[in-house]
């Protein structure tokens, strides 16, 4: 499916006009993007480091993981909304950027992994899951979200 019409439409939208005309607004939205990423990253790291037995070893991992879900969603929503605004300023350039598509792929993998693998698997008692599986899941999750953040920064360099 060719998404070019969507990017072309975004390039001429009101969002794009605002993003291109007001650098200050763009910078503030960029701040929200980074804050959203930090909230999401913090929740992922706390949960995954707990699964790896690195932090909060005296708190049940079920409690830690359950407490991160709401703020993970808030961080992700903040990232996506601010990301659409930021994309509108350079949407046609992004369409042809390999790094942008690498980030989008990593983001899609991350969302699918979180909502369809990690969350359902960790919704019950963690003692019923092999420790090696928990650790593998944590490492995979950290790797995916670090890839999302790093590839996002590299869009600016590509």
């Amino acid at each position: 499916m060719d998404l070019y019409p969507l990017f072309d439409w975004l390039d001429t939208s009101l969002l794009a006009d605002i993003a291109k005309a007001y650098g200050g607004v763009f910078a503030v939205v960029q701040m929200f993007h980074l804050l959203g990423m930090s909230i999401l990253g913090g929740m992922v790291l706390v949960g995954d480091l707990r699964l790896l037995n690195v932090v909060m070893k005296d708190t049940p991992s079920e409690v830690v993981i359950e407490s991160t879900h709401k703020w993970f969603g808030i961080g992700l929503a903040t990232m996506v909304v601010s990301g659409i605004f930021m994309s509108s300023a350079v949407s046609l350039k992004l369409y042809y950027s390999e790094m942008f598509w690498a980030k989008m792929t990593a983001l899609a993998v991350g969302v699918v992994f979180f909502y369809f693998v990690r969350r359902p698997l960790l919704s019950g008692s963690h003692s019923a899951i092999k420790p090696s599986v928990l650790k593998l899941m944590a490492v995979t999750s950290i790797a995916i979200w670090f890839t999302v953040a790093a590839s996002g920064r590299w869009i600016g360099f590509s």
Binding site: L35, L45, V46, A149
Partner: peptide, 11 residues
């Protein structure tokens, strides 16, 4: 990335 780690924990 380290900003994400630091701010993430701080948040």
């Amino acid at each position: 990335l380290t900003l994400m780690v630091f701010l993430g924990m701080l948040f």
